[in-house]
Design a protein around this nucleic acid. Sequence first.
DNA 1: TTGAAAGCGCTAACAA
DNA 2: TTGTTAGCGCTTTCAA
Lengths: 331, 331
Amino acid sequence: MSDVAKLANVSTATVSRVLRKPETVKKATQEKVFYAIQQLDYQPNMLARHFRTNKTKSIMVVVPSLTNLVFAAMIDGIDEVATAAGYQVIFGNTKQNTGKAREYVAHLKQKQVDGIILMTVRLEQEAWAEIANRYPIVLASDALVGLKVPTVSTTNIEGAYEAVCHLIQLGHKKIAHVAGLPEIAVSRERAKGYRLALEENGITFDPALYLEGEYSIEVGRKSMKKLMSQSPKPTAVFFGNDEMAIGGIKAAKELGMRVPEDVAVIGFDDIKFAEVMDPPLTTVAQPLHEMGKKAMEILLTLMNGQKTDQDVYTIKSEFKIRDSCGAYLKN
Amino acid sequence: MSDVAKLANVSTATVSRVLRKPETVKKATQEKVFYAIQQLDYQPNMLARHFRTNKTKSIMVVVPSLTNLVFAAMIDGIDEVATAAGYQVIFGNTKQNTGKAREYVAHLKQKQVDGIILMTVRLEQEAWAEIANRYPIVLASDALVGLKVPTVSTTNIEGAYEAVCHLIQLGHKKIAHVAGLPEIAVSRERAKGYRLALEENGITFDPALYLEGEYSIEVGRKSMKKLMSQSPKPTAVFFGNDEMAIGGIKAAKELGMRVPEDVAVIGFDDIKFAEVMDPPLTTVAQPLHEMGKKAMEILLTLMNGQKTDQDVYTIKSEFKIRDSCGAYLKN
DNA sequence: TTGAAAGCGCTAACAA
DNA sequence: TTGTTAGCGCTTTCAA
């Protein structure tokens, strides 16, 4: 930088100004400086800038897994807004490890990132609330019920409710639900929507038709087999997410059952493979990209020192009827 | 830090030493310092450290898309090694935009990251080679043929060759290939393996059975429809990746064709949805996680100032025969 | 084994 | 509109 200043016959302060607040510098001086910058192929040392300004212009996204299309789609939305605002996105992969997430908060304290978007919470809710009080934090997807942490989520309860009501309208009485792990708020909400739908339609909840497990193809597969080995068997299964549902359909076929004729299936998420499944998967679509964008927008206002006007931002899910639920069979 | 020093009755230099090279400090002093750190809940300012040491302990991964399971799996491997070595992983999403990638190199020059792993190259090969000469860069997945840039890849040619030979052994003569975009080295290599297999088996290459397009479900779908609207139709299609193959199977079904009876299909990658497809997709499995790990390991040696002993590290692909190719029909 | 002190490259308050 | 100057928090050399 001092080389540039020397070559342009100005002070380093002026070079800095040209770079950061060009409007405060005379046009002619600007040109001299830019010329010198070009001549020397000068690259500002960002580390010095970050150190000096005590900001890094980067945020961290904490995810439980990278190979999950739901998080990937959300990160895509985050990245879009972050890039536009000049922020870098850094990864924090918890790999289902609760302690890891707290470790990442250290980055915040150590000034390595200006803010954090959490896509998973798990336990220790109060600790998070306290941290959110001191640093810019936004929750996406998962939620901290009742605590004042800005959160972006979709209509999990309503979405699940709508899906299960749809099955009931199609004549199903024995509807199973394979829920995600109860530590995850999203799992609890979808299960709540499921129970609500049963209740409002006068169907009593049957614990034998309610399973829990990790959101994965494998768990969906095993759950379907378990359900079908019982008696009475369900005639429809609402899975907590699409991966599970895809595993469930696979299992049904392995058992020689037809979907939706022998068992109707509905998922949640609408990942890109849902539509190309055979049968195409009926599912509750999460507006993942939008949710990611919104989360980043909120984080930006937070990092800007402003308060958010709400704590929970909910973006509507959309119920997508395809073939796996059997709606098109009846026609 | 000076607070810690004061409380522990030592100099800031000693505090720094305790943190960075504890073996150079007397045990008793160490304890005093640790006690003070704990008392004050001191968090070292990483920005200052980075500035001072001129290193950030972070690397950037440049990907063309986040919602692609292939890259996600590779990043997972990268992250594993990076985390173990104390490095952060930062994202660079090019979104198919060639210029974007070069922009990310500025981060390297500006000291924002210590190294870069590129998962996509596209054109301007010489420029990259030159940059790789000055900074730690590793290519993963894609390749710069003939240039001295450390690269991790899989056996694309051999894998494709094996897949197509398999189809030939099953009796197919009219085998189509839907290749990825030719700008991508991986696409060219797989296409090369395809042509090699035809050639060695005395089948003349038919341009009508060779299509190109983006690696996506939609392109796979359209390509299959295009191929089936021609005459003569292929009896087997080797797709450049799994997403395309999944789209292709979908299209075949939409056309009322059976897979593999009416048309055999093979993909490339072995993403997690390949196995649960109906029929399960025969594919060439890329050791993505391993490739990611290897790429990061190489980058670590590069950032360590050492030279690499080879330029290209190839990790073997594995041909996975499932149902979509029809091998199990013949039995 | 420890302390004193310089300085990394930049920004911003203040002065001119 | 521009220059002077102090200093961000840390590491590291040199001296004790």
